[in-house]
Design a protein around this nucleic acid. Structure first.
Lengths: 340, 340
DNA sequence: GTGAAAGCGCTAACAG
DNA sequence: CTGTTAGCGCTTTCAC
């Protein structure tokens, strides 16, 4: 095992002290250009890489953030939401030269065991929480430990945590309004989990659209699909007897289940029932028929979460950062618009 | 900011030296039970957590491994393969108390920039490579740096890297043999990427089954779908004129594209064409119709990869570890068996 | 501008 | 069994 390169050695080779090399490595000011060049050359030649642990110990920064995802979310495996989110997060991490560690909480038990690793400043600089139950105790623990963190999706009203979210309410509102404009009058909805802000907000948008457009909210036309394809399939079956002429589904993944149910029941989309989803997953452009949906910038949200977290780490937790990103209605076949 | 707890402080509180506390924290032998209890109590009370960087610096272990995924893999977003793999990996990491960092390589460029972070012992203890091009230069670099690593999927023959794989060849063989037994004679295949071992091996299994069963290999019946739903859809369209009576599709994700193409062409499955996939994704049980497929233990593979990597880290790189996991034929509707 | 020196918190010999 | 000691490789004052 060849001896590890250290600042000391590089310094020797370049004829300067360890401290100077450190300055060069960190782009610190106060080094003569000529010297900087010389040191850089040696680093280049030798392929020197700083030892991250040593750096962390001395500087008290880990250059490590963690993304925590609760796996109660069964949709994790069926829904490309998370892969895209993860992609956004890693991309921004790469750009900022920090590394991302991923925690998936498989059970209460594991959650408990992982707490220290996620809460402790000696492990990570900050935490991103995705799709968390709005009242999850982890949130409180993080606050209490003064660990910088940011949520994807809104936390409880009372909390003054930082978050980034998509305007779910407005997206749902746009979807349902669009349906109303098509002349639909019995618009049903299959909702997402109601313990997550996105699920709640999409339902709220649905209701507001109905009310503002002079339609009444019929509880028979509201079924919970929990962001799950199979549950949405069953939910659609339950909805059928109530004869909706349209259904707003709180996620594309669930919308696939709805289309499947409708196909099997021999009900034509969009002629007999119009369907609008939420997410605009890539496969929604080629579903059968192609799905009208609300596009949300998942990847960008992941990337921005990192940027915001870094800002919090560097500038302090207060004031809380809050960002809400807009959505966009993507009209395809399932809403019937293109038939008119 | 309250002062950081250190071994020193805990020691003081418990009336022992820093070293003893360290022993207790690390479950090292050679501490009297009574003392151990006492120290443990203080740790419990204070909520002391070791500083990971300090520990790493002193012990030269990072307790960090990285999972590297090339994003050339577009299927990343449509195919639940990766989420499941990641799940297996994180689960095993959690059990072993190490953290997993995820790298997704979005571009050549980024790959280059990330090399140091992945190759350098100062950053991670080891690396898991998923779905890599079999000749990717990263493999050679890792070997050359003596960085412990393990591939998911087989590397080039010449390489003596450690790997874990699924018996793709045997799985494909089983799928096609099953089709032959149903009396199919014009069995087509839509293959995966041929620069990845799983893609190659599944094609090889297809060919062997045909040959061993006395059928000839017709190049017209072989189309590359690159593990992509849309390409598979197009591939199926291309296949239609050659009138296959069955098609073995190298992944479930692609099989969905095939079913879509067939549905649109008004060709009934399985009556006119039988379809068999590969993966057994959760949604394959509820596809339309439910998909006959080859199940592979994706999550387990991820978990085992971690265990093997840890073994390599602890015991040394030689000899290479190699594991090949079996697959299983899952018979559902699309192969026609259940109609007989 | 540059170097010397003092830690960061921990592990791992080595003594006792 | 337990304590003492010497680093691990780096950042960061503080002198010069």
């Amino acid at each position: 095992m060849t001896e590890r390169l250290t600042l000391e050695i590089i310094g020797e080779l370049a004829g300067v002290s360890r401290a100077t090399v450190s300055r060069v490595v960190n782009d610190s000011p106060g080094v003569r250009d000529e010297v900087r060049e010389r040191v850089l050359a040696v680093i280049q030649e030798t392929g020197y890489q700083p030892h991250s642990a040593a750096r962390s110990l001395a500087s008290n920064r880990m250059d490590l953030i963690s993304l925590v995802i609760p796996t109660s979310t069964q949709s994790l495996f069926t829904d490309p939401y998370f892969p895209r989110l993860i992609q956004g997060v890693t991309q921004s991490c790469n750009e900022n030269n920090i590394t991302m560690s991923l925690f998936m909480l498989h059970s209460e038990d594991e959650e408990e065991r992982l707490y220290p690793r996620v809460l402790n400043r000696g492990y990570v600089d900050g935490v991103i929480l995705a799709s968390f139950d709005r009242a999850d105790p982890l949130v409180a623990r993080l606050e209490q430990n003064k660990m910088p963190f940011i949520m994807i999706g809104r936390p409880e009203e009372s909390s003054n945590a930082s978050y980034i979210d998509v305007n779910n309410e407005a997206g749902a509102y746009a979807a349902v309004t669009h349906l109303v404009r098509q002349g639909k009058t019995r618009i049903a909805t299959i909702t997402g989990r109601q313990d997550i802000s996105s699920g709640k907000d999409r339902l709220a948008g649905y209701k507001r659209a109905l009310i503002e457009r002079g339609l009444s909210v019929d509880e028979n036309l509201i079924v919970n699909g929990r962001f799950n394809e199979l549950e949405a399939y069953n939910a659609m079956l339950k909805l059928l007897p109530h004869q909706p002429d349209a259904v707003f589904v709180a996620s594309d993944g669930m919308a696939y289940g709805v289309l499947r149910a409708l196909r099997q029941a021999n009900i034509s989309v969009p002629d007999e029932i119009a369907v609008v989803g939420f997410d605009d997953l890539p496969s929604s452009a080629t579903s059968d028929p192609p799905l009208t949906t609300i596009r949300q910038p998942i990847r960008r949200m992941g990337a921005m979460a990192v940027d915001m977290l870094l800002d919090i780490i560097n500038e302090g937790i207060d004031p809380p950062r809050r960002v809400v990103l807009p959505t966009e209605l993507i009209v395809r076949q399932t809403c019937g618009t293109l038939n008119l």
